[in-house]
């Protein structure tokens, strides 16, 4: 579990993170979205006790940052933005070093387990200098999990991975979620955030919005329903827009796009109205705005 209360970090005159207040329950996959320089990495660094906040407080797995830093680092795994390896050493040796520093008891067993799981067992004796970016990233994910942490911070986990490896990593994240771990993902990959995350925070120095991907869409754009008609005209739009549950309606070709509070409840009434006005309704669907649209809208307005 992660909680923050007015967490703030300033570097001289620059405010990187301002009054961040969050509560992430145990076992949640939490997406942290924001443009470059928004303060995402600074937030992760504060929550992993790498840097201290200027003001505010936070607890990670019940340990307060600034007070129980070693306990925090012992209970979290961190995938850094750039993996960083000792390139003269083998993959296995690299992981063994970290396993030892993370106080893992069965070093060989844990290292072997994650090397196998991430498909790197056959290359375990090769020096990491010979590894591709994707392989180094996979190895970094293994490093973040070696000590079986309760909370995992993943900074751009699928950056530099090919589609197959990205999929493997996403499946892996869902699997570690099943184990009840809390997962905090910083990402620019909105599709990935939508697939993996229970809730998403859009962040630009301060928290802009925090909700589930579906609710975010609703919050930002409302829910839009498209009525496909055989023939449509402006008169039909004028009729629809007079309904109290419709906040906006537009005519686009032979389609009427209406913003409706509760489509499940109000669509039948609208369809009855259209039919009574002589319209031939071909089919009705919801216009899904991508999370990217939501994100861009929020960041633009910030």
């Amino acid at each position: 579990m992660i909680t923050t209360q007015n967490l703030t970090k300033r570097f001289d005159q620059i405010t990187a993170v301002e009054n961040l207040t969050l509560e992430i329950p145990e076992g949640e996959v939490f997406g942290f979205l924001g443009p470059n320089g928004a303060g995402k990495t600074t937030t992760v660094r504060m929550l992993t006790s790498l840097i201290s906040p200027t003001s505010g407080s936070a607890t990670v797995n019940g340990h307060a940052i600034g007070e129980r830093d070693i306990d925090i680092r012992r209970s979290v795994g961190l995938l850094t933005e750039t993996p960083g390896w000792y390139d003269n050493l083998s993959a296995e040796r690299n992981l063994e070093i970290y396993a030892s520093l993370y106080e893992v008891e069965d070093i060989k067993g844990q290292v072997g387990k994650y090397l196998r799981f991430l498909g790197l067992w056959e290359r375990r004796l090769d020096v990491t200098a010979t590894f591709s970016k994707g392989m180094k990233q996979k190895l970094a994910i293994a490093r973040a999990l070696l000590h079986e942490p309760r909370t995992v911070f993943l900074d751009e986990p699928t950056a530099a991975l090919d589609p197959e490896a990205s999929r493997l990593v996403r499946e892996f994240i869902l699997e570690i979620k099943q184990q009840g771990r809390t997962i905090f993902i910083c990402t620019h990959n909105l599709d990935e955030a939508e697939r993996l995350c229970d809730r998403i925070a859009v962040f630009k120095t301060r928290l802009l919005v925090l909700d589930s991907p579906a609710n975010l869409r609703r919050q930002v754009f409302g829910r839009k329903v498209v009525f496909h008609l055989l023939q449509a005209d402006q008169a039909l739009v004028e009729k629809i827009i007079q309904l109290p549950q419709v906040t906006e309606a537009k005519l686009i070709d032979h389609k009427i796009v209406a913003t409706i509070d509760d489509p499940e409840k109000h669509n039948p009434e609208i369809i009855r109205l259209l039919v009574s006005e002589g319209a031939d309704v071909q089919f009705v669907g919801e216009l899904r705005r991508s999370l990217e649209d939501v994100y861009l809208q929020l960041v633009k307005n910030a």
């Binding site: 992993t48 790498l50 070693i70 680092r73 961190l78 850094t80 960083g84 390896w85 970290y98």
Partner: peptide, 14 residues
Amino acid sequence: VNRSLEPLLATPIT
């Protein structure tokens, strides 16, 4: 150069 200091400092080492 290898950017390995941050992961190292993220471990429970003082």
